[in-house]
Simulated scan of single mutants.
Amino acid sequence: MEIASNNAAVAVSPLSALISMFYEPSATFQRLEPRPRAWVPLLLLIISSVAVMSWYFAVVDFPWLMDQFAGALKTVEEREAFAKTMTKSVLHFSTVASVVVMFPLMFAISGVYLMIVSKSMSQGMSFGKAFALSTWASVPGLLMLPLGAMQIMLNPSGQLEMSALNPLSLNQLVFHYDMAHPMAGLMDALSVTTFWSMFLMMIGFEVWAKVKRSTAVLVVGLPYLVIFGGWAAFVMATNS
């Protein structure tokens, strides 16, 4: 029976893992453990994000968008410099490039952290396994493809801020800060998918590092608390 279970785990397809991650994450991480295939969610996240951003820049009212960016700058000099250097193609390329670089870098940093912490416990994780855990925990981010597409189609005028492509952010759901507000960036970064991914990473770390759930909650939750808590403290300190 154990041999059959192991064979099923090895044979799990990336597509079935992507789907089951939404409704049975613990069992999915168990099936993925022999062959995590980190490249699957990584490539899908990059491709879907690039697709949404490319569509966005193809239809956005760019003069209107530049007015929104300019309104968030504090001085006339900053606005003039921004207007001279920022064209539609430059902004499009820089956004896509940041997506392509950001995902692997973010997962690598997370992987190093999880590897180091797990090695201080009973069973250490390799960097490759910790990297894969970070990528699979980010699967909820794939929802940004249909949600972003929906936002674009619901705004035929093209007057849509980039942050509005994620209707699940706390800013879009609750606060509705404009781009110039000091807390806008933080509230745009905090999203339903952020907390969902954190929850999945806790489950995955519990399964792959063979630790108690309370330990997984502490290990995974601490960086989120430090990063977002520090961000909030900085914003409040600099705008008090």
Rank of each mutant, 00 (worst) to 15 (best):
G221Y: 01
L160W: 04
G148C: 05
Y177I: 10
S98M: 15
F131C: 06
V192K: 00
D188Y: 09
P140M: 03
N155K: 11
N166H: 03
L165I: 07
R79L: 00
E161C: 06
A164P: 05
L222R: 05
D188K: 07
W136M: 02
G141K: 06
G111A: 02
G204D: 08
M202W: 01
M144K: 07
S122R: 15
T215L: 09
S197D: 07
P182Q: 09
G111F: 02
Q123S: 12
I152Q: 01
I116M: 14
L91H: 12
V76W: 06
S89P: 03
V76E: 14
L186G: 00
N171Q: 05
G185M: 08
M102F: 15
F205R: 05
L190C: 02
S214I: 13
L200N: 04
P156N: 07
Q159H: 11
V217F: 07
H92I: 03
L145E: 06
Q172H: 09
S118F: 02
G204H: 04
S191Y: 00
M201I: 07
H92Q: 13
V211F: 03
A81M: 08
L173T: 10
S191F: 00
F195Y: 06
L170V: 04
A137E: 04
N155H: 12
T194W: 07
Y177S: 11
A189G: 15
S163Y: 10
V211S: 11
F131I: 02
L147P: 01
M144N: 12
M102H: 15
K84L: 12
M198R: 00
E78Y: 04
L105Y: 13
F131A: 04
M121I: 08
L143H: 02
K119C: 12
S157N: 12
T95M: 05
F175I: 07
M125T: 08
A130T: 05
T135P: 07
T135G: 04
I109T: 08
M201R: 06
M179A: 14
M201K: 08
H176Q: 14
L114W: 08
A184H: 14
S120Q: 14
